[in-house]
Amino acid sequence: MSQPTTHFTEHSVSIAAPADITYALIADVTGWPRLFAPTVHAERVSGDDEQEVIRLWALANGEVRTWTSRRLLDPRARTVAFRQEVSQPPVAAMGGEWRITALPDGGCAVDLLHDYAAVDDDPDGLDWIERAVDRNSRAELAALKTAAEQHERTGELVMSFEDSVDIAASAAEVYAFIDRSDLWPERLPHVSRLELTETVPGLQLMTMDTRSPDGTVHTTESARVCFEDTRIVYKQTRVPAIMTAHTGEWTFRPTADGVRATSRHTVAINPHTVRDLLGESATVADARQAVRSALGTNSLATLNLAKTHAESDRG
């Protein structure tokens, strides 16, 4: 049986930020969900800052896909080569390289190269891959440019926080409450509508209408990756205008008396919408406080209702 044909693409962008800053954003794969719209979750499975095995979960043509890649990192040359170790059909093979080149004006040029093949050279599969690579590459380079050029404001614009509740139940019972988000409109007063799609177990897409205390309704769309009984990570793919990114994680840690359930959020504030949404005198600090209050209130409400539900089931 002949090997499928390998195809090549290249996407490029110029960035008004130092090459080392830009390289660091590419090298830290755990930060990709905040930077890159297609990336839902990313983990280093093994390795170090020279070579590593990573696992990615990302949106491709409206589906959540996951794969494992090996990366070779060269901070001196500012290159990151990658090769999928485990691909999902229709992808037969996928690899490539990030190349960051310093420019005389203090900025840099970024080239993103891909090589790929479709299973059995199937034309439909090849078309699916071409569209996914082109769409995601363009989105990632645009996001990289924005993040690198705003790197001096990262500490101001990005924040993380968490809330926890101790529950006298098993981790599995509390996990089930968060996992079954399709039941949230019946269980959570602040959720008025929720549509859940889970064609692959543990990979979920959800659209949710959330009712604020002032009566307004906000629609968000999220992708979730569920690790049975231990944690659920998610990324909002449609965020309120006050944010540019929102990722989160539900964790369930057994304790001597039951389980500690924790909701963690990482949010990037959109500095260009703060005054339009909060008033002419509003600052990024005001936006941070408003987002912390809104997300924390909803998370704690969800955790406390999970507590009531799980503990009442125990009689």
Score class of each variant (00 low, 15 high):
Arg34Gln: 14
Ile26Asn: 02
Asp229Val: 13
Trp67Leu: 15
Asn298Gln: 13
Lys235Gln: 15
Ala27Pro: 05
Leu144Cys: 03
Arg193His: 11
Ser181Phe: 00
Ala77Tyr: 00
Val86Lys: 06
Leu103Ser: 14
Arg224Ala: 10
Ile15Trp: 03
Phe227Ala: 12
Thr5Asp: 08
Ser293Cys: 08
Asp182Trp: 02
Ile167Trp: 06
Ala81Gly: 13
Glu130Val: 11
Ala268His: 06
Leu205Gln: 05
Pro4Val: 06
Gly215His: 05
Asp134Pro: 07
Ser46Trp: 03
Thr216Phe: 07
Ala109Asn: 13
Arg275Gly: 11
Asp115Arg: 06
Tyr175Cys: 02
Ala282Arg: 06
Val233Phe: 09
His265Gly: 04
Ser46Val: 07
Ala142Pro: 05
His190Ile: 11
Glu63Trp: 02
Pro89Val: 04
Pro90Asp: 05
Ala290Pro: 01
Thr68Leu: 09
Pro189Ile: 05
His246Gln: 11
Gly258Cys: 08
Ala261Gly: 01
Thr262Asn: 11
Gly279Thr: 07
Ala268Pro: 00
Val217Met: 06
Asp28Leu: 04
Thr146Leu: 12
Ala241Pro: 05
Glu186Thr: 07
Gln51Phe: 03
Val110Gly: 00
His114Asp: 00
Val40Cys: 15
Ile26Leu: 15
Ala172Cys: 12
Arg135Cys: 12
Ala171Met: 08
Leu300Ser: 07
Gln84Phe: 01
Leu103Pro: 00
Gln150Ser: 12
His309Arg: 11
Val200Asn: 08
Gly62Ser: 07
Ser263Thr: 10
Leu188Cys: 03
Arg44Asn: 14
Val86Cys: 00
Trp98Thr: 07
Val13Leu: 13
Ser137Thr: 13
